[in-house]
Computed example of a mutant assay.
Amino acid sequence: MNERVTSWWSGLPPAAGSAVMATGILSVGLHTSGHEVLSVVALCLAGALWVLLAVHFAALAVRDRGQWEARADTPSALTAVAATTVLGARLALLGWTVVATVLLVLAAAVWPLLLVAVLRHLGRRVPGAAFLVCVATQGLVVLAAVLAPHIGDWLARAGLVLFALGLLLYADALNRFDFRQVLTGAGDHWISGGAMAFSALAAAELLDSGVWVGDQRAVLRTTTLVLLGIGLASYVVLMAAEAVRPRLGYDVRRWATVFPLGMTAAATLSAADSADVAWLDTLGRVLLWIAVAAWLLTAYGLARSVRAGRERGNPGAPAVPEL
């Protein structure tokens, strides 16, 4: 690598994984809404970003173990798990069951190690990144539920246990969350609502797995709609806060805004189908294009940030602190 590429490579923060999450969930939403070409384009981009980050953090573990361990203690490290499960879920929808299964095994192996490390170092009055403890867990549930029809009912049942754990982790993160972040956060405060939308998507995928019957389906359907309602209410509150206190300019944490926007859209579209609520489909499509617009704006901001960094002769310096 030349000096500039090496500098940029070494400066990648763990929070960059939220860009994979954002792009991957848009691919899922575009697939669900019937925009397959755009969905595949987004999938290819998410896959390329995932490979780049996976190689980077594997290399960091070999080259600088101390720095790798320090990063593993931060909530943003859990984007590795969430990004892997989102990518796996989209590949499963594409019919790539074996690859998706490998990604599930990989995410499941890394998840407990990172989760324990993060929880041990999680304090009080934390930013929205703390909700990644829930997001990473529910990501495993989503991928397990999608793969259950191909692998076995036991996978969905195991997913249900993780689903309950994910809700408990959400409650713990909410108890620690600094609510001032709603007005002052740089972007990751959106995960507070996105995690609930992701939980709704997990419930919808469990409902759609075909494992549950009778009252079990009724309970899951109600749970899906309740969680989605909370997620949508959070969406409105967070959007209103952005209007009251605009936070313009690029920040790497804005990828953690795009992901919840896309996640809310994907959860709404999924709930429309699995819970059989037709009007949610229309709402989901509107929310999806809002998320696409946010992705484009954030990608533009990233491009300008990288260009400005190169002009300063320091392309690898992160624009802001990590999540």
Results as ranks from 00 to 15, higher is better:
residue 2 N to H: 13
residue 3 E to D: 15
residue 11 G to E: 08
residue 13 P to D: 06
residue 13 P to K: 10
residue 16 A to P: 00
residue 16 A to M: 10
residue 16 A to N: 05
residue 19 A to G: 12
residue 20 V to E: 04
residue 22 A to L: 10
residue 28 V to F: 05
residue 33 S to D: 13
residue 33 S to P: 03
residue 34 G to N: 05
residue 35 H to P: 00
residue 37 V to A: 14
residue 37 V to S: 13
residue 38 L to G: 09
residue 38 L to T: 03
residue 39 S to L: 09
residue 44 C to H: 12
residue 46 A to Y: 00
residue 47 G to K: 06
residue 48 A to H: 07
residue 48 A to W: 10
residue 56 H to M: 10
residue 62 V to C: 14
residue 66 G to I: 07
residue 69 E to L: 15
residue 71 R to S: 10
residue 73 D to K: 14
residue 74 T to Y: 07
residue 76 S to L: 04
residue 79 T to F: 12
residue 79 T to A: 12
residue 82 A to C: 06
residue 84 T to C: 05
residue 87 L to S: 00
residue 88 G to Q: 04
residue 89 A to N: 11
residue 92 A to Y: 01
residue 93 L to Y: 08
residue 93 L to E: 12
residue 93 L to G: 13
residue 94 L to A: 13
residue 95 G to Q: 12
residue 95 G to M: 09
residue 97 T to P: 02
residue 100 A to H: 01
residue 101 T to H: 03
residue 101 T to A: 09
residue 103 L to K: 02
residue 104 L to I: 03
residue 110 V to N: 03
residue 114 L to W: 01
residue 119 L to V: 10
residue 123 G to I: 11
residue 123 G to T: 08
residue 123 G to P: 03
residue 124 R to D: 13
residue 131 F to A: 02
residue 132 L to S: 01
residue 137 T to E: 05
residue 139 G to L: 08
residue 143 L to Y: 06
residue 143 L to Q: 06
residue 143 L to N: 01
residue 147 L to T: 07
residue 147 L to A: 07
residue 149 P to M: 05
residue 149 P to T: 07
residue 151 I to L: 15
residue 153 D to V: 08
residue 153 D to S: 12
residue 157 R to D: 11
residue 158 A to T: 11
residue 164 A to L: 15
residue 165 L to A: 15
residue 166 G to M: 05
residue 168 L to K: 05
residue 170 Y to Q: 07
residue 170 Y to C: 04
residue 173 A to W: 04
residue 176 R to D: 06
residue 177 F to K: 04
residue 178 D to E: 13
residue 178 D to H: 14
residue 182 V to N: 01
residue 183 L to F: 12
residue 184 T to H: 12
residue 191 I to N: 00
residue 191 I to D: 00
residue 192 S to K: 09
residue 192 S to C: 14
residue 192 S to F: 10
residue 195 A to F: 01
residue 199 S to G: 14
residue 203 A to H: 06
residue 207 L to E: 01
residue 208 D to V: 01
residue 211 V to P: 01
residue 213 V to T: 15
residue 214 G to A: 06
residue 221 R to W: 03
residue 221 R to H: 09
residue 222 T to M: 09
residue 227 L to H: 00
residue 229 G to E: 06
residue 229 G to A: 08
residue 231 G to D: 02
residue 232 L to W: 03
residue 233 A to S: 14
residue 235 Y to E: 02
residue 236 V to F: 11
residue 236 V to K: 05
residue 240 A to L: 14
residue 244 V to S: 12
residue 245 R to H: 15
residue 249 G to V: 08
residue 255 W to L: 06
residue 258 V to P: 02
residue 258 V to S: 01
residue 260 P to M: 04
residue 267 A to R: 02
residue 269 L to F: 08
residue 271 A to C: 11
residue 272 A to G: 15
residue 273 D to L: 09
residue 276 D to Y: 08
residue 277 V to W: 04
residue 281 D to T: 12
residue 286 V to W: 15
residue 289 W to T: 02
residue 289 W to R: 08
residue 290 I to E: 09
residue 295 W to F: 15
residue 299 A to I: 04
residue 300 Y to P: 00
residue 302 L to A: 12
residue 306 V to F: 11
residue 307 R to E: 11
residue 312 R to F: 09
residue 313 G to P: 05
residue 314 N to P: 00
residue 314 N to V: 14
residue 317 A to R: 14
residue 319 A to K: 09
residue 320 V to E: 11
